[in-house]
Every structure is written in C-alpha cells, then in structure tokens.
Write a protein that binds this DNA or RNA. Structure first.
Lengths: 338, 338
DNA sequence: TTGTAGGCGTTATCAG
DNA sequence: CTGATAACGCCTACAA
C-alpha cells in the first residue's frame, strides 16, 4: 500500500523514455512501437498506476472545449410524503441502469420548491452534465433555475412551462379510462382524494376525473373532491366527511391513501365493494394484498426512468430530442370494484 | 446565454490587473486593496464568472496532495426485493441531509454481490472520497473491494469482517425483545419467515429468534423456520405449509411479507389475532392500516443514515471513528398480537 | 517511432 | 498591496 501517487513522468523517468511515449502507450492513441508499449503497460500493471482524472479532464478541455463530467443529477422532492412511495426509488433504478450503459453515473439531490441549494451547489460546481427532475410543479423553481443556467435537463411528468423537455406516462388517458370504467358500473357519487395542488400530477388526475364524467354527460360534485391532503390528520377529517355523505365510490390519487381508507371503512362497518367501490390512480404491490385487493392503475416506473435517462443523455450529447408521452399503463382490476 | 467560458485571465486582462490579484480577490486569501477587490467582484457578478473546479482541484492538489471530490457514494443492492421497501430511500434522505451540511454531495450506484462494475467505475475514476454500503452480506464483495483499494467506507448493518467501520441499529436486542414479548403471551409454535441467508440482517434476526426462545428455556422448531423466501411463489408455498401446521404465531422478518400473510389467512378463514398472532421485525406506515394493524419494530432509518454519513465524513477527514450500535428502536404494539 | 515544448485554469511563492 | 512565475498531471501539435 505505497501511498505514493505515481505519474506518467515517474514512469518515463524509470523507463528512460519520454512522457509523450508513456501517454501514447496508455491512451492507445498515436503510433507507438509494440515493444515500448509492452514495457510501459508492464510497469503500469506492476506499480498500479492510475491516471489522474482531474489533470486529464483539464488537458482534454483545452482541445475539445469539453468539460463533461459524465454525471447526471437526479432531483428528488424532499417532502415527507414522497419518502413513503416507491415511485422515486423505481425511477432511479431505471435511470441508473441506462446511465451505466452510456458510461454515466448518477448524483442524487433533494429539492423543495423553496429550497434548491443542494441542486445549485451541484450545478455551480460543475459536478453534472445535466439533470432529471422527478416531479413537476405548478410553480417549478428547480426547472426555472436550470433553464436560466442553460443546463440540459428533463422533467418526469407533464409541465405547463414551454420548451422544457419532458417524459411522462399517459396519466391523463389512464385515469380517464379507469374513471369511465367506474362510471360504467353505475356509480353516481364518487369521492376523490388527492395530494398537493402544486403538483402537476394532482391537476392532471383531477382533470381526468372531470373529463371522464363529462364524457358521460355527468357532473362532478365539488363537495366530494378532497385535495391538498398531505398529512394523516387531513386524511382522517376528509374520510369522516366522505363517509357521512353517502358516496358509492372512492378514488384515491395515490396508493398511500388506500390503507387508511380501508381501515376507516372497516371500522365504520362499511363493506368494500358491496357498499362502496374503491380504486387508486397508482398501484403498488401492497394493493394486491389488501383485503379486499384494490383496483389500480399500474405504470412501469422503471421503464419511465430508463426512457428519461436516455432522453437526457441524448440531449447532453447534442442530439435533438423531443418530449414523450409513454403508453405505459395497465388497469389492474381487483375485488374492490367488483 | 453567452456560451463563452470566462477565466480568471480574462478578468485580469479586462481590468488591467494580474491574474494573481484576481485570484486573491475571489478566494479572499492574501492581502488585497478593498477598491481592487470590489472592482473584481463587480466584474465577476456582471459577467457571471464561475471558477473552473477542475483546474482548481488540480492546483489544490499540488499544495495539499489532496485529491478530494466532496462526493460520497451510496451503494444500493440492486435486487428486486430491495426496491419495494422504503428503508433504502429513507436511509439516503438521512445521508443526504448530513452530507449537505458538510458540503458533500451524494452519488448513487447499484451493486450486486456478483456485479460491482458500477462501483468500480466510480472508485477508479476518483469520483468519490468514500462510500456507504447500505446492506451487509455474508460474502461481501463490495466491502472486500473497497478495503483492498484503501477507500474509506462505512457499512450500514453488522458484518463478520474485521476492521470494517459499521453503523447499525440494535437489531439483535430489538428482535429479542419482540420475540420475548410474544413468548410471554404464551405462544408455543411460532413460524418465522425471512429473506436471503446471505444478508447479515437475516442471520441476526434468526439468531435473535433463537436466543429469545433459549432465554425462556424453549426450543425453536426448525421445521417452522422459512428462510431464503425471495419471491412470491416461495412465499405462497411457505404459507401453505405454515397454515397446515397448526402454528399459533407468525413472525415476518420484513414488512413486505405481511400483506400476503394477511390475505392468505383471511382466505383460509384464519382470524388474527384470535387464531394466530402476527408480528414483523420491520415496521412501515402500511402496517398501521392493515386489518388488523400489525405489531412491528420501528427503527428510525433516517437517523441511521444521518449517523452513517457523519461517521464516513469524519473518517474521510482523518478523524478516528469507531463502529456504532444505535439504540434506535421502538416496539409498536398493535392489534395483531392482542 | 519517439521526443520537445507549450498550455488547460488555478493557486502559492517570492520578489517588488 | 500587487505582479511575474512556476507548478499540479496530462495531452497533442510539431519537430526530429
């Protein structure tokens, strides 16, 4: 474990040749005699030489003007509710896989709409070549910042901002499809439970809920729509309200709401699906094993991550890429809506 | 959006002063006239100058011999089962928070015991100063690799290897406590369901299960221990077997097993807790809302991540740190064991 | 095929 | 208080 860092000059000196020759032997670029090359490679092997990537990058910059790090930033929301759902985790696995294929590594950072210091540090220190925002916001501070800095980035989800590269599941269609299915079963008074209205996904889901009703000439009762439910207390209150209102169906925007709904119904002696049908706009393995299992929309998050990563990398490398909407959903019909 | 990268020499030329002076103004080191400094800072502001970190690092290396990146690697297991549980997600949030406090950023990479190419690339390209392994293995390829490369690292969880820095929850004590509680309720035939035996955590939990029995002069029936349950099929088989064997309790090593247990019991007309008590060695919000809610051990994973990160950073910065066992658990008694 | 020389952007030394 | 200069490790035109 000799702590001494060895450089190409050291090798050159030891072998009685010039730095240039050593550099050529190692990089494989330029003509070089086979004997010389072997000699160098031998020495490299024996003395465990590792090139100094910093110096390499600096020298390389001179010729190519390229300052790339081969790193991508993935930005996670840092609110508590996001930590409980596996979406972001699956997404990043998909991202990592593709990134690795292209020789990129992944940096992870948290950001809230009112605190993007972590992201700023990474960008300003040139630690990444581009970024992926894993949640779109109505008031999207991170996106605005990246755009203004001229950093390539892709958002996962839809956005109202112009000229922003995005990759999204076909959430709108998927949600409409599910709600239509429920309305088709004759449901008349469905409640809707969802999270922050500052998340684009919440708006999209709400819009789908409305549009499905409209398509069938029905109208949504706004008194049955519960948004901005972002903590257990609000959820409890909403549920109490809902159960007192004689609804015949409950749609949860996220799987995270479902457990509580089931347990409250059970306590209140309300049977699912006999008395109330229940469905979720987002599936997870957990919903397969609830009693009863709950109908939900399943998306392939890992695939979504993969597509996003490849879009970003292609954008970084100068290709022209455009936003995509993935046909990526499946309705998992389960007992809760039978 | 002037693509031109501006350097310290550009500033010097524009202002008719020397590079040295500009450097001093920006770094704040060395004596410099206040007027000059303001002039420079003004220009920096107006022309949006950002230092080239690569060059900075190289120059810095010359004097301090320090090659640090201010990045940490976090290594996730890349098997499918890990993706479903929020443990790793919570852990990394804790890690990120502390890292940010110390001015470090986080790189994420996946590794399996038989595939650590991602980790290798990050280490060999000097992209990080140290690493955190989020799962310990009996046959720990990543740990062996890092040790042999001389890279500072910390493992989350206990390990059999010597001289490895680790931070862990008091899993053994916690599990013993829970099992003792169950035995204290008079249970005589408890089944145990767990994951891969190559995970140290599985061994620890199994050991706790045994030791709790021994403390009360009881013996574990090996026929009721189901390990290496790493896919739905195996779980189904195990459960079928268990339910045919007249057990009076089931302990799941992880919350991921619980949903399936509950639904199988319900199908079979077995009541919990009346016929069989149920508990889990790992809690999650989901277990609060199952029917019935399930008794489980709750650990503060975010805190675990935070402690791990601070250990690693202190190790990187040359302090002597030692392995820690956190007193970090709480038994959440719920209806499933009443 | 190989060597010489100069430069990437920055910082610290040392002289003015 | 300020400026010229060398150096960090590597790479590539250009010369030999």
């Amino acid at each position: 474990m000799s702590g001494k860092k060895i450089t190409i000059s050291d090798i050159a000196k030891a072998l009685g040749i010039s730095k240039t020759t050593v550099s050529r032997a190692i990089s494989g670029k330029g003509r070089i005699g086979p004997g010389t090359k072997d000699k160098v490679m031998d020495y490299v092997e024996k003395n465990n030489y590792k090139p100094n990537m910093t110096a390499k990058a600096l020298a390389n910059y001179k010729y190519t003007g390229d300052h790339s790090t081969h790193n991508l930033a993935v930005v996670w929301p840092d609110d508590y509710s996001a930590m409980e759902i596996p979406f972001f985790q699956k997404l990043i696995v998909g991202i990592s896989e593709i990134a690795a294929n292209y020789g990129y590594d992944v940096m992870l950072t948290m950001a809230a709409d009112d605190n993007i210091t972590g992201l700023k540090r990474i960008i300003e220190n040139h630690k990444v070549d581009g970024a992926i925002l894993t949640r779109t916001l109505v008031n999207d501070t991170p996106a605005v910042y990246l755009k203004e800095r001229g950093v390539p980035f892709v958002v996962v989800g839809s956005t109202d901002y112009q000229d922003i590269l995005s990759v999204d599941n076909d959430n709108l269609d998927a949600c409409i499809e599910l709600v239509e299915y429920l309305l088709g079963k004759g449901l008349k008074r469905m409640a809707l439970i969802g999270g922050s209205r500052n998340h684009i996904i919440t708006r999209t889901r709400f819009r789908a809920f409305r549009e499905a009703h409209e398509k069938l000439g029905l109208k949504v009762d706004d008194g049955l729509v519960y948004l901005d439910i972002d903590n257990p207390t609000k959820l409890d209150d909403a549920l109490q309200d809902i159960l007192s209102k004689k609804v015949d169906g409950i749609v949860c925007m996220d799987d995270g709401f479902v457990g509580e709904v089931l347990s409250k119904c059970s306590e209140a002696g309300i049977r699912i699906p006999e008395d109330i049908k229940l469905a979720s706009f987002y599936d997870s393995t957990f919903l397969e094993n609830t009693i009863p299992p709950v109908t939900a929309l399943r998306f392939n998050d890992r695939n979504l991550g993969a597509v996003t990563a490849s879009s970003l990398i292609r954008a970084i490398e100068g290709e022209t890429v455009s936003s995509q909407m993935l046909k990526n959903h499946e309705i998992m019909l389960r007992k809760s809506t039978e």
